[in-house]
Design a protein around this nucleic acid. Sequence first.
DNA 1: CAACCGTTCTACCATCTGGTCAGTGGCGGG
DNA 2: CCCGCCACTGACCAGATGGTAGAACGGTTG
Lengths: 195, 195
Amino acid sequence: MATQERVLDGALRAFGTRGYEGTSLDAIAADLGIRKQTILYHFPSKELLLEAVIDRAGAELVAALEGALARSGPGWGRVEAIVRSVFRLAARRPELLGLLREVSRLGPPPATQLRLRLEPFVAAATVYLDEEMRAGAIRRQDSRLLLLAAYSAVIGMATEVEVLRAVGLEPTARNLVRRRAELLAFLRSALLAEA
Amino acid sequence: MATQERVLDGALRAFGTRGYEGTSLDAIAADLGIRKQTILYHFPSKELLLEAVIDRAGAELVAALEGALARSGPGWGRVEAIVRSVFRLAARRPELLGLLREVSRLGPPPATQLRLRLEPFVAAATVYLDEEMRAGAIRRQDSRLLLLAAYSAVIGMATEVEVLRAVGLEPTARNLVRRRAELLAFLRSALLAEA
DNA sequence: CAACCGTTCTACCATCTGGTCAGTGGCGGG
DNA sequence: CCCGCCACTGACCAGATGGTAGAACGGTTG
């Protein structure tokens, strides 16, 4: 693979798991078997590297979610498709979801950048929720806040390993499937209008 | 105030907002108008300072939640009391909730420490959920996973400022109240068994 | 072949980091 | 009175950090 891509990959993994400040360029370079100066050749500063990583991660995130939606049925099937997609990411690319959280913790400059990249998807999601509400399928409420609550629940169930341990469960593969099932039941009763 | 207490306070604020690795002892000291060596006099290393901060934050967290429960009614009132308490913390001591997230990101050594401190409270919460389920007040499901989902939703609604911006809302005081109201509606339909 | 270019490296630097050490000043007890 | 203790600080250090300068390497092109 091209070095530039390998660097982006390694940086995403590192930033998404050990955090931005918790990761040194030397550490990323060592993981890739190259010298830190090679990283700085392709990305002039650590900050610019983060920007590139965010752009890439944002694109990958959107691609995964849009792809899941494209292969999904209508109505509730869309929620299930998104949840499935997020749990798939939690299992195969945990650093992607880790970066999401890390970026939102870093605040304005990086967070704004990621937000702009995800904006269209967020807009589409609120439109979906509003439509389902108008159709009477989903309980009426503020769609933006509903989205925030659902987002938090999904990301939390998929990634909060330490909280999982706190409630006495181990983060195994089988467990991930159970979590997904329970989450879907949770979301169903939280969202769906009473039959 | 005693210096030791002031250091703990400053460190909690810093760790909870800028993160552990993102905070230098010099920065904490400068905020307090003292020298870094003074911090190291009271806490022999940055790691031990973090431990002390976690212990303090854990105790404060438990105190706030237990206090809220003590002043609450039975049944659903307990959930409302907890949510109210968390939103109060989000407004007045955001660093406390920030530290919660930071510690869970840092993983095992600090996370385990905090987990042990919160363990009794978590256990009481699952017992509460199980009882409410047996009484038919709450939909039957795995109480531990339900707790994780509810925890994520609550913390997210109370603290995810950047995600809030992503859905087009500004984190104002009035907004916080709206978020709390929407969250309670969300939790009510997610948890309560159909009437 | 020679000039060139993109890429990677070695060598180096200023700054910051957590941490050590030897004090210094105040204050209470013998 | 002064001794010792507590809280605090200035001077210092070794290692890590992000970043720069310049040489070397291999391939492409005139």
